[in-house]
Simulated scan of single mutants.
Amino acid sequence: MKHFRKEIIAVLLIVFLTANTTSQTKRSSVADSDTKVENKKKKRKKVKLPEIDLSHWSVTTPELNEKGRATNIEPPAILNYATDQRLIPYMYNDSTIGALVFYAFPSAATTANTKYSRTELREQMVPGDNNVNWTFKQGGYMKGKLAMQEVSKGSDGKYHKVIIMQIHGRLTNEQRDFIGQKDNNAPPILKIYWQDGKIRVKTKVLKDLNATNTEILHEEAWDDDEGFSFEQKVDFNKFTLEVKVSEGKMVVILNNNEYAVYENIHMKRWGVFENYFKAGNYFQSRDKGAFAKVKYYELKVEH
């Protein structure tokens, strides 16, 4: 009888242990499943997009179009850049960091009055129309959060220069016809460079302060200034640039703590022109194998 009881107790113990093991296995499986779901959720959260509204920008790339010119894509087509085969190689999202990457290299696709190629945005106040622009009197504000991702070096061992922001002048149709020019092109009043890890600003100055309002419409009336370099070195780190324009004044701000202020006769006389903002990667080299990639995390414009 005692032997029989021992057998019953042994059987019950085995049943209990088996049930407990099965329960633990089920709990473990559920826990593993929950962990996988949680991990998937975490992975999904890592996908980021840049904070850039492209509905008021066109873009020029280093790709030749069917007319043998630099490819230009305007709104609304630019909004499909992530699937547009013409843009995918030159303008694409890095969704791991939430940036829009602009890639440029020397190509045959250049624009008027330059030998360099670009993947660069051009502001359009009215989407698809380059004839509506702004004056210094009307004012403008552009802010970008960006970083240099990669850039090649020249034979001198220095990094190639890249223009990352601009304010470009433009003749009205009436001004163009009045001076007999074939296009609306006017000089850029502002060029901001990434140069050897620092931010450098170039603007325009009149060669003759006594030039008439008609004479200053010609590009040859203007010259480059000596340029200004901010003290802070940004290298390949993320930084913020702001450009503020008002009547007779232009201010460039780096990381909210360094300022370049232009308030002089040249800025006052510049009021004769219309303007538009540009941002991206205007690559400043024709060296074989040269290239640059610029990342924009944020870009906004106000008027």
Rank of each mutant, 00 (worst) to 15 (best):
Met1Ser: 14
Ile8Thr: 06
Ile8Gly: 03
Val15Asn: 03
Thr22Tyr: 14
Gln24Ile: 14
Thr25Ala: 15
Lys43Tyr: 04
Pro50Leu: 08
Leu54Ile: 07
Ser55Tyr: 09
Ser55Asp: 07
Thr71Gln: 12
Thr83Cys: 02
Ile88Tyr: 04
Asp94Arg: 04
Thr96Glu: 04
Thr96Arg: 02
Phe105Gln: 10
Thr110Ile: 09
Thr110Gly: 05
Thr111Met: 00
Lys115Phe: 10
Met125Lys: 12
Asn130Thr: 15
Trp134Pro: 02
Lys137Ala: 02
Met142Cys: 04
Met142Thr: 07
Lys145Tyr: 08
Ala147Tyr: 05
Gln149Thr: 13
Ser152His: 06
Lys153Leu: 08
Asp156Glu: 01
Lys161Cys: 09
Gln166Met: 11
Gln195Asn: 14
Asp196Arg: 10
Lys198Ser: 09
Val201Ile: 15
Lys204Phe: 08
Asn210Phe: 07
Thr214Asp: 12
Ile216Gln: 13
Leu217Ile: 13
Glu219Ser: 14
Phe228Lys: 14
Ser229Gly: 00
Gln232His: 13
Gln232Trp: 06
Lys238Ala: 12
Thr240Gly: 00
Val243Phe: 04
Val245Gln: 11
Val252Ile: 02
Lys268His: 07
Arg269Asn: 13
Gly271Leu: 00
Phe273Tyr: 15
Asn275Arg: 06
Gly280Cys: 02
Gln284Pro: 03
Lys288Val: 10
Lys288Ser: 05
Val294Cys: 09
Tyr296Trp: 04
Glu298Thr: 03
Val301Ala: 00
